[in-house]
């Protein structure tokens, strides 16, 4: 709890100083990244969700696709609403699970989107990211 609070403050500070930030609409950055692999806490959380849900088993360790499609490509095409809908309901016939029963994924869709969008935009240059200091 206390730790979360401190991190939030820290992230605000970094966001101001960060060299790269994508805007999600309004002035709030969708993600913030430094040196290609240091990201804001929310985006870092998105990375953790990506790992925990084992998305790499289908989409590849670098999101470039395997049995499932490349998310580097897909995130250039999918709207934000479509992203949420695919995650929630899945694309069963293609093997994409419906994640609506997975609380970790459902509660963190924004963070997951931020992380994957950052990868797709090329702003986050490696799949593995660190939390900004």
């Amino acid at each position: 709890m206390e730790r979360g609070f401190i991190l939030r403050i820290a992230s605000l500070a970094v966001a101001v100083a960060a060299p790269m930030a994508a805007l999600a609409g309004g002035d709030k950055p969708l993600y913030t990244v430094e040196d290609g692999n240091k990201v804001d806490p929310a985006t870092y959380n998105g990375f953790k969700v990506w790992r925990a849900a084992a998305c790499d088993r289908c989409h590849g360790p670098n999101q470039e696709g395997m049995v499932g499609p490349s998310l580097i490509d897909s995130l250039k095409v999918l709207t934000r609403d479509e992203f949420n809908q695919v995650l929630t309901d899945g694309r069963m016939a293609k093997g994409m699970p419906a994640w609506n029963t997975n609380k970790k994924v459902m509660d963190n869709l924004d963070d997951l989107y931020a992380y994957l969008k950052g990868r797709s935009d090329g702003a986050i240059t490696s799949a593995k990211v660190k939390k900004m200091k």
Binding site: G60, N62, M66, G68
Partner: peptide, 11 residues
């Protein structure tokens, strides 16, 4: 070992 594995390789 399927075809898509290729894309998953680390750059």
């Amino acid at each position: 070992a399927g075809i898509g594995m290729a894309a998953g390789l680390e750059k």
